[in-house]
Amino acid sequence: MVQDKTISSRIFDIVNYTLLSIIGLVTILPFLHVIAGSFTTVTELAQKQFVLFPTVWSLDAYKYVFSTNTVFRSLGVSVGVTFFGTLFSMLLTCLMAYGLSRRDLDGRNFIMFMVLFTMLFSGGMIPTFLVVKEMGLIDTYAALIVPTAINAFNLIIMRNFFQNLPEGLEESAKIDGAGDWGILFRIVIPLSMPAIATISLFYAVTYWNTYMSAILYLNDAAKWPVQVILRQIVILASGLAADTSGMDEFVRPPEQTVKMAVIVIATLPILCVYPFLQKHFAKGALLGSIKG
Protein backbone atom coordinates (compact mmCIF):
# COMPACT_ATOMS: atom_id res chain seq x y z
CA MET A 1 0.00 0.00 0.00
CA VAL A 2 1.21 3.46 -0.89
CA GLN A 3 2.20 5.40 2.20
CA ASP A 4 1.00 8.96 2.34
CA LYS A 5 3.44 11.34 3.90
CA THR A 6 1.36 14.38 4.73
CA ILE A 7 2.04 16.10 8.03
CA SER A 8 -1.39 15.33 9.44
CA SER A 9 -0.87 11.68 8.60
CA ARG A 10 2.50 11.72 10.40
CA ILE A 11 0.91 13.27 13.49
CA PHE A 12 -1.85 10.67 13.34
CA ASP A 13 0.79 7.92 13.35
CA ILE A 14 2.70 9.39 16.26
CA VAL A 15 -0.44 9.75 18.38
CA ASN A 16 -1.65 6.31 17.40
CA TYR A 17 1.66 4.56 18.20
CA THR A 18 1.95 6.38 21.50
CA LEU A 19 -1.57 5.54 22.60
CA LEU A 20 -1.18 1.89 21.61
CA SER A 21 2.10 1.66 23.51
CA ILE A 22 0.38 3.05 26.60
CA ILE A 23 -2.52 0.62 26.25
CA GLY A 24 -0.12 -2.31 25.88
CA LEU A 25 1.84 -1.21 28.92
CA VAL A 26 -1.24 -0.65 31.09
CA THR A 27 -2.49 -4.13 30.19
CA ILE A 28 0.57 -5.95 31.48
CA LEU A 29 1.69 -3.55 34.20
CA PRO A 30 -0.45 -5.27 36.87
CA PHE A 31 1.19 -8.61 36.04
CA LEU A 32 4.69 -7.13 36.17
CA HIS A 33 3.92 -5.39 39.45
CA VAL A 34 2.73 -8.63 41.03
CA ILE A 35 5.74 -10.56 39.73
CA ALA A 36 8.14 -7.93 41.08
CA GLY A 37 6.27 -7.79 44.39
CA SER A 38 6.48 -11.54 44.84
CA PHE A 39 10.29 -11.38 44.68
CA THR A 40 10.83 -8.90 47.48
CA THR A 41 10.46 -8.79 51.25
CA VAL A 42 7.48 -7.66 53.26
CA THR A 43 9.38 -4.72 54.75
CA GLU A 44 10.59 -3.57 51.36
CA LEU A 45 7.02 -3.62 50.12
CA ALA A 46 5.85 -1.74 53.20
CA GLN A 47 8.53 0.95 53.26
CA LYS A 48 9.10 1.81 49.65
CA GLN A 49 6.25 1.85 47.27
CA PHE A 50 7.50 0.63 43.97
CA VAL A 51 5.72 -0.38 40.83
CA LEU A 52 8.28 -2.51 39.05
CA PHE A 53 11.74 -2.52 40.61
CA PRO A 54 12.23 -3.26 44.29
CA THR A 55 15.73 -2.57 45.70
CA VAL A 56 15.75 -5.73 47.77
CA TRP A 57 15.19 -9.03 46.02
CA SER A 58 14.16 -12.09 48.01
CA LEU A 59 12.62 -15.52 47.72
CA ASP A 60 11.00 -15.36 51.18
CA ALA A 61 7.47 -15.35 49.83
CA TYR A 62 8.07 -18.48 47.77
CA LYS A 63 9.83 -20.20 50.67
CA TYR A 64 6.83 -19.44 52.84
CA VAL A 65 4.34 -20.65 50.24
CA PHE A 66 6.17 -23.94 49.81
CA SER A 67 6.87 -24.39 53.54
CA THR A 68 3.40 -25.87 53.84
CA ASN A 69 1.61 -28.42 51.77
CA THR A 70 -1.45 -26.44 50.75
CA VAL A 71 -0.24 -24.79 47.57
CA PHE A 72 1.98 -27.67 46.56
CA ARG A 73 -0.86 -30.16 46.80
CA SER A 74 -3.24 -27.91 44.88
CA LEU A 75 -0.68 -27.54 42.09
CA GLY A 76 -0.52 -31.31 41.86
CA VAL A 77 -4.30 -31.46 41.57
CA SER A 78 -4.31 -28.81 38.85
CA VAL A 79 -1.56 -30.49 36.84
CA GLY A 80 -3.33 -33.85 37.05
CA VAL A 81 -6.74 -32.44 36.16
CA THR A 82 -5.27 -30.48 33.26
CA PHE A 83 -3.41 -33.49 31.88
CA PHE A 84 -6.10 -36.13 32.21
CA GLY A 85 -8.90 -33.69 31.50
CA THR A 86 -7.37 -32.57 28.22
CA LEU A 87 -6.77 -36.16 27.18
CA PHE A 88 -10.30 -37.23 28.04
CA SER A 89 -11.91 -34.19 26.42
CA MET A 90 -9.88 -34.53 23.24
CA LEU A 91 -10.74 -38.20 22.91
CA LEU A 92 -14.48 -37.59 23.26
CA THR A 93 -14.41 -34.45 21.12
CA CYS A 94 -12.43 -35.97 18.24
CA LEU A 95 -14.52 -39.14 18.15
CA MET A 96 -17.80 -37.28 18.14
CA ALA A 97 -16.60 -34.55 15.77
CA TYR A 98 -15.36 -37.09 13.25
CA GLY A 99 -18.62 -39.00 13.39
CA LEU A 100 -20.59 -35.81 12.86
CA SER A 101 -18.36 -34.79 9.97
CA ARG A 102 -19.50 -37.78 7.92
CA ARG A 103 -22.10 -36.55 5.48
CA ASP A 104 -23.63 -39.95 4.85
CA LEU A 105 -24.66 -40.44 8.47
CA ASP A 106 -28.34 -40.85 9.29
CA GLY A 107 -29.42 -38.78 12.28
CA ARG A 108 -26.49 -36.42 11.90
CA ASN A 109 -28.67 -33.32 11.76
CA PHE A 110 -30.62 -34.44 14.79
CA ILE A 111 -27.46 -34.90 16.87
CA MET A 112 -26.06 -31.58 15.64
CA PHE A 113 -29.24 -29.85 16.69
CA MET A 114 -29.04 -31.54 20.05
CA VAL A 115 -25.51 -30.16 20.51
CA LEU A 116 -26.37 -26.65 19.30
CA PHE A 117 -29.42 -26.38 21.48
CA THR A 118 -27.28 -26.81 24.61
CA MET A 119 -25.57 -23.56 23.64
CA LEU A 120 -28.87 -21.71 23.87
CA PHE A 121 -30.57 -23.36 26.80
CA SER A 122 -29.44 -25.32 29.82
CA GLY A 123 -30.90 -26.94 32.87
CA GLY A 124 -28.79 -24.66 35.00
CA MET A 125 -26.73 -25.02 38.11
CA ILE A 126 -28.98 -26.90 40.51
CA PRO A 127 -30.33 -29.66 38.21
CA THR A 128 -26.78 -30.22 36.93
CA PHE A 129 -25.53 -30.40 40.48
CA LEU A 130 -28.17 -33.02 41.30
CA VAL A 131 -27.10 -35.14 38.31
CA VAL A 132 -23.44 -34.92 39.32
CA LYS A 133 -24.43 -35.92 42.83
CA GLU A 134 -26.58 -38.84 41.64
CA MET A 135 -23.61 -40.13 39.67
CA GLY A 136 -21.52 -40.18 42.82
CA LEU A 137 -19.03 -37.65 41.52
CA ILE A 138 -19.17 -35.27 44.49
CA ASP A 139 -15.73 -34.96 46.11
CA THR A 140 -13.98 -36.86 43.33
CA TYR A 141 -11.44 -35.40 40.90
CA ALA A 142 -13.64 -36.70 38.09
CA ALA A 143 -16.15 -33.98 39.02
CA LEU A 144 -13.68 -31.44 37.68
CA ILE A 145 -13.48 -33.25 34.33
CA VAL A 146 -16.50 -35.33 33.40
CA PRO A 147 -19.36 -32.79 33.77
CA THR A 148 -17.56 -30.36 31.43
CA ALA A 149 -15.89 -32.92 29.19
CA ILE A 150 -17.10 -31.62 25.83
CA ASN A 151 -17.31 -27.96 24.93
CA ALA A 152 -19.91 -27.63 22.16
CA PHE A 153 -17.98 -24.76 20.59
CA ASN A 154 -14.76 -26.81 20.39
CA LEU A 155 -16.71 -29.78 19.06
CA ILE A 156 -18.09 -27.71 16.19
CA ILE A 157 -14.68 -26.25 15.33
CA MET A 158 -13.24 -29.79 15.18
CA ARG A 159 -16.16 -31.04 13.10
CA ASN A 160 -15.82 -28.19 10.61
CA PHE A 161 -12.12 -28.91 10.32
CA PHE A 162 -12.68 -32.63 9.66
CA GLN A 163 -15.43 -31.80 7.21
CA ASN A 164 -13.12 -29.58 5.18
CA LEU A 165 -10.53 -32.33 4.66
CA PRO A 166 -10.58 -33.59 1.08
CA GLU A 167 -13.14 -36.38 0.76
CA GLY A 168 -10.99 -38.27 -1.70
CA LEU A 169 -8.65 -39.28 1.12
CA GLU A 170 -11.31 -41.31 2.86
CA GLU A 171 -12.50 -42.82 -0.38
CA SER A 172 -9.08 -44.04 -1.37
CA ALA A 173 -8.42 -45.37 2.12
CA LYS A 174 -11.68 -47.30 1.93
CA ILE A 175 -10.69 -48.78 -1.38
CA ASP A 176 -7.45 -49.88 0.25
CA GLY A 177 -9.58 -51.71 2.80
CA ALA A 178 -9.28 -49.40 5.81
CA GLY A 179 -12.14 -49.44 8.31
CA ASP A 180 -13.68 -46.35 9.92
CA TRP A 181 -11.39 -46.55 12.95
CA GLY A 182 -8.36 -46.94 10.73
CA ILE A 183 -9.35 -43.92 8.65
CA LEU A 184 -9.83 -41.81 11.76
CA PHE A 185 -6.62 -42.74 13.56
CA ARG A 186 -4.26 -43.27 10.61
CA ILE A 187 -5.43 -40.64 8.16
CA VAL A 188 -7.77 -38.02 9.58
CA ILE A 189 -6.04 -37.37 12.91
CA PRO A 190 -2.48 -37.15 11.57
CA LEU A 191 -3.73 -34.67 8.97
CA SER A 192 -5.50 -32.58 11.61
CA MET A 193 -2.62 -31.96 13.99
CA PRO A 194 -2.84 -28.12 13.80
CA ALA A 195 -6.52 -28.17 14.76
CA ILE A 196 -5.89 -30.80 17.43
CA ALA A 197 -3.10 -28.72 18.93
CA THR A 198 -5.36 -25.67 19.00
CA ILE A 199 -8.29 -27.40 20.64
CA SER A 200 -6.03 -29.22 23.12
CA LEU A 201 -4.67 -25.86 24.23
CA PHE A 202 -8.22 -24.54 24.55
CA TYR A 203 -9.09 -27.43 26.84
CA ALA A 204 -5.82 -27.30 28.77
CA VAL A 205 -6.26 -23.61 29.60
CA THR A 206 -9.86 -24.22 30.64
CA TYR A 207 -8.85 -27.09 32.93
CA TRP A 208 -5.96 -25.15 34.44
CA ASN A 209 -8.37 -22.30 35.14
CA THR A 210 -11.01 -24.64 36.62
CA TYR A 211 -12.63 -22.98 39.55
CA MET A 212 -16.42 -23.18 39.38
CA SER A 213 -16.62 -26.96 39.22
CA ALA A 214 -14.44 -27.21 42.30
CA ILE A 215 -16.59 -24.71 44.20
CA LEU A 216 -19.74 -26.58 43.22
CA TYR A 217 -18.67 -30.19 43.53
CA LEU A 218 -15.73 -30.46 45.95
CA ASN A 219 -16.29 -29.93 49.65
CA ASP A 220 -13.03 -31.60 50.60
CA ALA A 221 -10.43 -28.81 50.70
CA ALA A 222 -7.60 -31.30 50.23
CA LYS A 223 -8.82 -31.89 46.68
CA TRP A 224 -9.01 -28.24 45.63
CA PRO A 225 -7.10 -27.08 42.54
CA VAL A 226 -4.76 -24.10 42.70
CA GLN A 227 -7.35 -21.57 41.51
CA VAL A 228 -9.54 -22.21 44.54
CA ILE A 229 -6.57 -22.05 46.90
CA LEU A 230 -5.54 -18.75 45.29
CA ARG A 231 -8.97 -17.32 45.94
CA GLN A 232 -8.92 -18.51 49.54
CA ILE A 233 -5.52 -16.96 50.18
CA VAL A 234 -6.17 -13.61 48.54
CA ILE A 235 -9.74 -13.12 49.70
CA LEU A 236 -9.12 -14.49 53.18
CA ALA A 237 -6.38 -11.95 53.70
CA SER A 238 -8.62 -9.19 52.45
CA GLY A 239 -10.85 -10.03 55.40
CA LEU A 240 -13.79 -10.71 53.13
CA ALA A 241 -14.11 -14.44 53.34
CA ALA A 242 -16.66 -16.05 55.58
CA ASP A 243 -15.42 -19.44 54.55
CA THR A 244 -11.82 -20.10 55.50
CA SER A 245 -11.80 -23.85 55.19
CA GLY A 246 -8.70 -25.48 53.84
CA MET A 247 -6.61 -22.63 55.15
CA ASP A 248 -5.63 -24.14 58.49
CA GLU A 249 -2.01 -24.16 57.50
CA PHE A 250 -1.96 -20.39 57.04
CA VAL A 251 -2.47 -19.47 60.65
CA ARG A 252 -2.16 -15.73 60.18
CA PRO A 253 -3.42 -13.79 57.18
CA PRO A 254 -0.83 -14.09 54.43
CA GLU A 255 1.30 -11.05 53.63
CA GLN A 256 0.99 -9.17 50.36
CA THR A 257 4.18 -10.75 49.02
CA VAL A 258 2.82 -14.23 49.72
CA LYS A 259 -0.39 -13.45 47.89
CA MET A 260 1.62 -12.16 44.96
CA ALA A 261 3.75 -15.30 44.93
CA VAL A 262 0.67 -17.52 44.79
CA ILE A 263 -0.74 -15.43 41.95
CA VAL A 264 2.53 -15.85 40.03
CA ILE A 265 2.54 -19.60 40.65
CA ALA A 266 -1.03 -19.94 39.36
CA THR A 267 -0.27 -17.76 36.32
CA LEU A 268 3.09 -19.16 35.30
CA PRO A 269 1.95 -22.25 33.36
CA ILE A 270 -0.35 -20.11 31.22
CA LEU A 271 2.45 -17.65 30.50
CA CYS A 272 4.70 -20.55 29.51
CA VAL A 273 2.31 -21.84 26.88
CA TYR A 274 1.21 -18.35 25.86
CA PRO A 275 3.43 -18.10 22.76
CA PHE A 276 1.75 -21.24 21.40
CA LEU A 277 -1.64 -20.07 22.53
CA GLN A 278 -1.41 -16.81 20.71
CA LYS A 279 -0.34 -18.44 17.50
CA HIS A 280 -3.09 -21.03 17.46
CA PHE A 281 -5.87 -19.35 19.37
CA ALA A 282 -6.44 -16.45 17.04
CA LYS A 283 -6.83 -18.98 14.27
CA GLY A 284 -9.13 -21.10 16.41
CA ALA A 285 -11.32 -18.18 17.34
CA LEU A 286 -11.71 -17.27 13.71
CA LEU A 287 -12.26 -20.85 12.59
CA GLY A 288 -15.31 -20.95 14.77
CA SER A 289 -16.79 -17.58 14.12
CA ILE A 290 -16.30 -16.78 10.48
CA LYS A 291 -18.20 -18.52 7.81
CA GLY A 292 -16.42 -20.70 5.31
Binding site: P30, F31, V34, G37, W208, N209, Y211, Q227, V228, L230, R231, V234, I235, S238, Q256, K259, M260, V262, I263, A266, T267
Partner: peptide
Protein backbone atom coordinates in the same frame (compact mmCIF):
# COMPACT_ATOMS: atom_id res chain seq x y z
CA UNK B 1 -8.82 -17.17 34.94
CA UNK B 2 -11.17 -14.75 36.65
CA UNK B 3 -9.59 -15.85 39.91
CA UNK B 4 -6.25 -14.46 38.74
CA UNK B 5 -7.76 -11.25 37.33
CA UNK B 6 -9.72 -10.62 40.53
CA UNK B 7 -6.81 -11.61 42.78
CA UNK B 8 -4.46 -9.18 41.06
CA UNK B 9 -7.09 -6.46 41.37
CA UNK B 10 -7.50 -7.27 45.06
CA UNK B 11 -3.79 -7.12 45.74
Amino acid sequence: SWVIIVSISFV
